[in-house]
């Protein structure tokens, strides 16, 4: 006896992701999935963006971490609502975890929800969370070959934010190389260079996000 199934294995996640997106749409919340390696500067970028968009948008954050709540504490200090997901070892967030976290958000107080994914350039690529936009964060110290080495995560992203641009003189990072690779993998993606601790490039990134938010709803 043979049962022919021919089912996609990630279908369960994709279905839940669509449900999350529908829920967010109904609530008028624009959702951004922020991915990148550990130490790329995802939290620092969010901190800088929040300072810049203060008064213009009402952000909230879902923090995905393997353990602890260090990043969530940093976000909470800014007065931004934050939900911590501890994946207890899992290398990525999935749509089911986001569905659970969405339940504890006050939708009226939020118009843009950032999901800071687990630091990982590999596994996070395979899981749609129900976001409207995905941003990949890459620091100059990680090297300009990362899009070529981890194409999937770059290919599915709507923007590349190159962080720690103030370190460029001290590295062999070639912005032209990563730009060419990104244009090849994701021709429509925006590319930003920022130095979040100094504020360089943050206004341009924030303006783009606000514009996406107003056209996406």
């Amino acid at each position: 006896m043979k049962i022919i199934a021919a089912r996609k294995l990630l279908k369960a996640n994709d279905q839940l992701a669509e449900e999350n997106r529908a829920r967010l749409d109904a609530a008028g919340v624009f959702c951004v999935n922020v991915v990148g390696s550990p130490g790329a500067g995802k939290t620092t970028l969010l901190e800088a963006l929040f300072a810049t968009v203060a008064g213009r948008v009402k952000p909230a954050v879902i923090e995905g971490d393997i353990a602890g709540s260090l990043d969530a504490e940093r976000i909470a200090k800014l007065g931004v609502p934050v939900v911590q997901i501890n994946t207890e070892g899992a290398c990525h967030l999935d749509a089911n975890m986001i569905a659970a976290a969405l339940g504890s958000l006050d939708y009226d107080a939020v118009d843009v929800l950032f999901i800071e994914n687990v630091g990982n350039l590999v596994c996070t690529a395979g899981f749609d969370l129900g976001e409207h936009l995905r941003i990949v964060v890459l620091s100059t110290s990680e090297g300009d070959d990362k899009a070529a080495k981890y194409p999937a995560i770059f290919q599915g992203s709507d923007a590349l934010v190159i962080t720690k641009a103030d370190l460029l003189p001290h590295t062999n990072f070639n912005a032209d190389r990563i730009t060419a690779d990104m244009k090849r993998l994701a021709p429509n993606a925006e590319i930003f260079q920022v130095a979040a601790l100094r504020g360089d490039g943050i206004v341009a990134t924030a303006d783009w996000l606000v514009q996406k938010l107003s056209s996406g709803r």
Binding site: S69, A72, V83, I85, N86, H92, M97
Partner: peptide, 15 residues
Amino acid sequence: MTPLAASPKNMHELS
């Protein structure tokens, strides 16, 4: 801040 624990999984292929 709201803490939330996901079910324990420890790698991509496990899920």
